[in-house]
Design a protein around this nucleic acid. Structure first.
Lengths: 223, 223
DNA sequence: CTGGCGCTGTCAGCGAACTGTAAGGTTGGC
DNA sequence: GCCAACCTTACAGTTCGCTGACAGCGCCAG
């Protein structure tokens, strides 16, 4: 689950980052509106925490541009002022929730969880391609009907591949999605994860496209 | 099991809170309609007790908004007036039950229990996965047919896990469900509770998914 | 009021599981 | 056949969860 924080105050950012990473979210942070808009437009985030008072381009504008461009990810807006106008404007612009600074981290987390839950409730909780099945609500994986245990990292990788079943995904796309941005990829870590997964199923589930990346076929006839 | 009380009269709130907390429910309370709607929209509650005569936003409107937004939790409405119109309107708006003020706490509790049971999707008050059995009416637990004594906290944890048997539940989900919102989770308290429970059964009943959470398997062949 | 008791949170040390690294083998394309 | 890309395996560092001991709290009986 990737979260984008758009906030220019360093201490708030680092507090939020720490809390969210404790909850195993993958956090990216930007400090001005232009960058916020760009990242949210170009990358995939499961949730955005957006300060309204950003330099260069204010939060409301960023949000409106995203929505105009059909970026529908849940957005929580932060406002320093306790004015209901901001909140109303924000909700009208397409925000899903708001928080007034200062706020307690627990409250932020509760709202994040709620939005994640709501977003999850809208899509089907089961990802499947015929042989491989992933229940995103139960966080379980099964192969040809047999339950299989996977680690947290393996699960993230599987979920990403299966979510984009039929599409070839490059290493860097995969890495972006399952690691946070600081972690460099200077070894064959990804290959190793793939290998470990293959051993748990059979070697054919995850296909390699030499020079391009990996993919999981979108529909496989059952056996 | 979390309950939201939306009621503006302090004495009624505190009476209800005391009774419900005696029954080991986790209670949150709000005093106006706007906050009620917001909390119910954003957080997860297993049941709501909703006064119809709330300031700022009346109860019926709150309820209709929740239902429009697909919030399906059971709702008991309270009405000060003994008029059938309110009740009918309330039920039409999606309430599951009603109570006319003044009422006796025992009656409230009975209705709460009934709705909880119904929401659990089973007429029987017994939760079981084959080896572990939990009688929600008597608040007793047995393992392989043998009764086992558990503390209140342990019971809440077990009930939550068993209620979602087969699902991996993260620490924060569990904490949300068994503690009230004020309590911080800054240590390994949860792990300790799990350990104590494991010692009372055998170590295999509650499974750990490292980095993800805990789960109780949904169906275990009896021995 | 006091002491005992049961419940629960905190802490520290240990062990196991997870994951990145590296080295050597294998495969596929040119 | 050669080279680069990829796979596999083993290993080691690190993180995460478990456990046992302890302490604080609230409750009840004396």
């Amino acid at each position: 689950m990737r979260i984008l924080i758009a906030e220019d105050e360093p201490t708030i950012v680092s507090d939020m980052r720490r809390c969210l990473e404790d909850q195993h979210y993958i956090v990216s942070a930007v400090t001005d509106g232009e960058e916020a808009w760009y990242r949210g437009d170009v990358e995939h985030f499961d949730l955005v925490i957006l300060d309204l008072g950003l330099p260069k381009l204010d939060g409301l504008t960023v949000l409106r541009r995203w929505r105009a461009g059909r970026r529908g990810m849940p957005v929580i807006i932060l406002t320093a002022r306790d004015s209901w106008r901001d909140k109303v404007d924000g909700m009208d612009a397409g925000a899903d929730d708001y928080l007034t600074k200062p706020f307690r981290m627990e409250e932020l987390l509760a709202r994040v969880r709620a939005l994640m839950r709501r977003a999850a409730g809208q899509s089907s909780p089961i990802l499947s391609n015929g042989v491989l099945e992933l229940d995103t609500r139960q966080r379980t994986v099964s192969f040809r009907g047999q339950p299989v245990q996977v680690t947290a990292l393996e699960y993230r990788l599987l979920a990403y591949l299966l979510h984009n079943a039929g599409t070839v995904l490059s290493r860097s796309q995969i890495a972006d999605s399952i690691y946070d941005e600081e972690t460099e990829l200077l070894s064959n870590a990804l290959e190793v994860v793939v290998a470990r997964l293959r051993r748990k199923f059979d070697g054919t589930v995850i296909e390699t496209r030499r020079g391009q990346g990996y993919l999981i076929p979108s529909e496989v006839p059952p056996v």
